[in-house]
Simulated assay, not measured.
Amino acid sequence: MRAALDEVHIPVEALKGRGSATRLAHRFERDARQAFDDGWGTLAEDLAQAPQQLPTEVIWEDARSIIGSNDSPDIFFERSLNPYRGCEHGCIYCYARPTHSYLNLSPGLDFETKIVAKRNIAAVLRAELSKKAYEPKLIAVGTATDCYQPLERELRLTRAVIELMHETHHPFSLVTKSSGVERDLDLIAPMAARGLASVCVTLTTLDAELARRLEPRAAAPHRRLRTLKTLSEHGVPTVVSLAPQIPFLTEDMEQVLEAAREAGARSAFYHVLRLPWEVNPLFKQWLELHYPQRAARVMARVRELHGGKDYDSDFATRLKGRGAWAQLIAQRFEKAAQRLGFNRERIRLDTSQFRPPGPEGQGQLF
């Protein structure tokens, strides 16, 4: 293993509520440190004194731009925004973990405990929407990290974004694993009634114990189903994401779809597990920690999905995989979705109602 991927382990019992068991050195680091037992017992003493819980730290950022563009042919949206970098939910499979490397932070525990918050997000977004050349298109919110992670209760950055979307009649969709989205139904529901908003809830599995290990600080599966139901009852178009599908772990696809349909979801999709950059060693560590007996089988199937490699970034196959196992997952999804009535109509949001925002602080007359 390269020096850049050496890690410093922390005792498992000290990681309550965290997905990663290590501060994995990021791929740009020149130096890496590894715990070493010198024979004097100091390592054991240090580990015994490690904190039982790791606190979350907020790092404020003054962003220069907010709306990101996407030209990946396998992604449905062209524009997105994310109020936060890093995510307290701690999902071990999160493909956004390697982005913390650009901040000189670990994609492991730092990604879960050092959260960058874009405190000026509403002001910068207002300026971008006010440009004369701005052309309204759907903006997907929270596509990299969850826009309703626990810090949002206090910081309300996502709320500020939706308030601006509401003011300008700008269409948006958002994706979350959190019940916190219910807080903003006073804005989302009226926009949904005008064809301006939809919500996607990620529901990887109904197995509460597996979900707790995979996504330690996200809402429990039954709570996400209740969120889907609440959103649907308020007239919000809802989508359920079964991502990622992990061989020999998330084996209840049909049951998830049935429960989501009963809760009111009308659209659904899935992706297979992706392990880019540092996500690969982090996920392998997680497997050995929580499911050592089936770790080799899981990784063998993951490689089969990606042409014999742990990960293949090819746009044509990275989300759905390739080979016999990918075909089996696709057939299961298609048959269940068709039987339950998913995806019969595409959710289309209206861009024609957009009106540029006024100066910050200026009230609306009508």
Rank of each mutant, 00 (worst) to 15 (best):
M1I: 06
A4L: 04
L5I: 07
V8D: 02
P11L: 09
K16Y: 04
G19R: 01
H26I: 00
F28E: 03
F28D: 06
R30M: 09
D31S: 11
D31E: 13
A32V: 12
D37S: 12
E45M: 11
Q49F: 02
P55K: 11
I59H: 06
E61C: 09
R64E: 15
R64P: 00
I67N: 01
D71M: 07
P73K: 13
F77H: 15
E78W: 01
Y84E: 07
R85K: 12
C87E: 07
Y93F: 15
Y95S: 11
A96P: 01
R97S: 06
T99K: 02
T99D: 10
Y102S: 10
S106K: 11
K114W: 06
V116K: 11
A117W: 10
K118I: 06
K118L: 03
R119S: 03
A123N: 02
L129K: 01
L129V: 08
L138D: 02
I139M: 04
V141T: 02
V141P: 04
G142M: 11
A144W: 12
T145E: 05
D146V: 07
E154W: 03
L155W: 12
L155T: 07
A160S: 15
E163D: 12
M165Q: 05
M165V: 02
E167L: 09
T168V: 08
H170R: 09
L174K: 07
K177M: 08
S179R: 13
S179P: 01
V181I: 15
R183W: 11
I188T: 01
L196D: 04
L196P: 01
S198Q: 13
V201L: 15
T202A: 13
D207E: 10
A219N: 13
A220N: 02
R224I: 09
T227R: 08
L228N: 00
L228C: 06
K229M: 08
T230N: 02
E233R: 15
G235F: 05
A243E: 14
A243K: 01
P244Y: 02
T250R: 01
D252A: 07
M253D: 03
Q255N: 08
E258R: 14
A268M: 06
Y270G: 04
R274T: 06
L282W: 08
F283Q: 03
K284Q: 15
W286H: 12
H290E: 15
Y291E: 11
A296D: 15
V298F: 10
M299N: 03
M299P: 03
E304T: 05
D310V: 13
R318G: 02
K320R: 15
W325Q: 07
Q327N: 14
Q327C: 05
A330W: 01
Q331C: 01
G341S: 08
F342V: 06
Q353N: 00
P356E: 02
P357C: 04
P359H: 10
G361Q: 04
